[in-house]
Design a protein around this nucleic acid. Structure first.
Length: 313
DNA sequence: ACCTACCTGTTT
DNA sequence: AAACAGGTAGGT
C-alpha cells in the first residue's frame, strides 16, 4: 500500500496529535509485529517528533519532550499497514496488532494503533546512540526524491551501477531511490514519457532530466492529494486519499490514455504488474518497420508481450 | 537478476 | 479454485 506520499500524509496527519505526548500502556497483541521489543520498554517515553525516510516512519523518543532523543520507533507499513489514532471509548478495530496509549497533561488519552490485514508490516524500537540522526537500518536507502538536492544527475549517478536493470526495476529499488512503489514508479514513467522496460544503460541525459522532474512532480501532487487510496490506505485521521482520481496508467489498463486516447497496456516487469501508454511511452526497440503513425486499431493492445502467441480475436 | 515466502482479502 | 494486491527479505 503505502508509498512515499501515503507515508508522508500519515506523518503530517499524526504529527500535531502525537508530538509531546508520553507513551503509557503498550499492547502488543500479535507476536512478531513489534520486533524484538519488550513492550514495557516503550512506556514512559515521550514523542518529540515524527520523521520519514523513504517509506519508513521514525518516531523520535526521549525521557522528556524537549530532551535528547534516546530511541527511535521505526515503522514500515508494507502493503496494508495503517497507523491511526483511536479514542479509547471505541471497540478494537479489525487486524489491530499494536496499541500505544498516548498520554497528555491536558488531553484525553488516545490509542495510536497499528492495523495490518496482511501482517507484513513491522515496528522496531531502536536505541539511539549519542548523535545518531537515523536508525542504522536506513543507511542503505537511496536519496530522498523530495530533497532539494535530488536532481537528474543524482538519479543518473544512483542508477549507474545497475546498467542492465529496466528503468522500472531501478525505480522500485529502494537503494537507488527511496520511496517509490508500483503506483508512483508507473506514474512517474508515464509523465516522463519513458517505456518501463527501457534499460538503464540506454537512458539519455535529457531522459534523466524528464524522469527526475516527473518523480518530484508526481510525488508532490500525490502528497497534496493526501495519497492514493485503492483499498486500505487512510491517514492518521482515518481519511482516505484522493490521488487515485488522477492516476494516468496505474490500474488503467484497457482504458484510453488521458493524453492521447490510445489504450493503456499492461504487462509484468520486475515481478510486478506494469501499466503504460504505448504511444506516450514508446518502446524505441520495438520492431516497427513503418513510419510513426497514430494507432487507430492497431495491435498495441492491453496485453503482456509474453502472451503475444495467444492471438485472440 | 530472478524466484519464493510472508499473510489475508477480493476478484475472476 | 486460482489469480492477484500498495513491499521487502532472503535464497539461488
Amino acid at each position: 500500500m503505502p508509498e512515499l506520499p501515503e507515508v508522508e500524509s500519515i506523518r503530517l496527519s499524526l504529527l500535531p496529535r502525537v508530538t509531546g505526548r508520553t507513551i503509557g500502556t503498550v499492547l502488543a497483541d500479535t507476536p512478531g509485529v513489534l520486533v524484538d521489543t519488550d513492550s514495557s520498554s516503550l512506556s514512559g517515553l515521550t514523542i518529540s517528533g515524527i520523521r520519514r525516510r523513504g517509506k519508513y516512519l521514525v518516531f523520535d523518543l526521549g525521557q522528556s519532550g524537549d530532551g535528547p532523543v534516546t530511541a527511535f520507533l521505526m515503522v514500515h507499513l508494507r502493503m496494508t499497514g495503517r497507523l491511526t489514532l483511536q479514542p479509547q471509548s471505541q471497540p478494537v478495530r479489525p487486524h489491530t496488532h499494536v496499541r500505544l496509549e498516548l498520554l497528555s497533561g491536558c488531553l484525553e488519552p488516545v490509542w495510536l494503533i497499528f492495523q495490518d490485514t496482511r501482517r507484513f508490516g513491522r515496528i522496531w524500537l531502536i536505541p539511539a546512540p549519542d548523535g545518531a540522526q537515523w536508525p542504522g537500518h536506513l543507511a542503505r536507502l537511496g536519496p530522498e526524491p523530495l530533497d532539494p538536492a535530488f536532481n537528474a544527475q543524482v538519479l543518473k549517478q544512483q542508477m549507474a551501477r545497475h546498467a542492465r536493470l529496466s528503468v522500472k526495476a531501478a525505480l522500485l529499488d529502494q537503494t537507488i531511490i527511496a520511496g517509490l512503489g508500483n503506483i508512483y514508479a508507473d506514474e512517474s514513467l508515464f509523465r516522463a514519457g519513458l517505456y518501463p522496460a527501457r534499460k538503464v544503460a540506454g537512458l539519455q541525459i535529457n531522459e534523466y532530466t524528464r524522469l527526475a522532474h516527473a518523480i518530484t512532480q508526481v510525488l508532490a501532487e500525490a502528497i497534496a492529494c493526501c495519497g492514493t487510496t485503492l483499498r486500505d490506505y487512510v491517514d492518521g485521521w482515518s481519511r482516505e486519499g484522493q490521488f487515485q482520481n488522477f492516476l494516468n496508467v496505474y490500474g488503467q489498463a484497457g482504458k484510453p490514455c488521458r493524453r492521447c486516447t490510445s489504450l493503456i497496456s499492461k504487462g509484468k516487469l520486475a515481478g510486478r504488474t506494469t501499466s503504460w501508454c504505448p504511444v506516450c511511452q514508446p518502446d524505441p526497440d520495438a520492431y516497427d518497420g513503418t513510419v510513426q503513425e497514430q494507432p487507430s486499431s492497431v495491435s498495441v493492445q492491453a496485453q503482456s508481450p509474453a502472451n503475444s502467441h495467444q492471438g485472440r480475436g
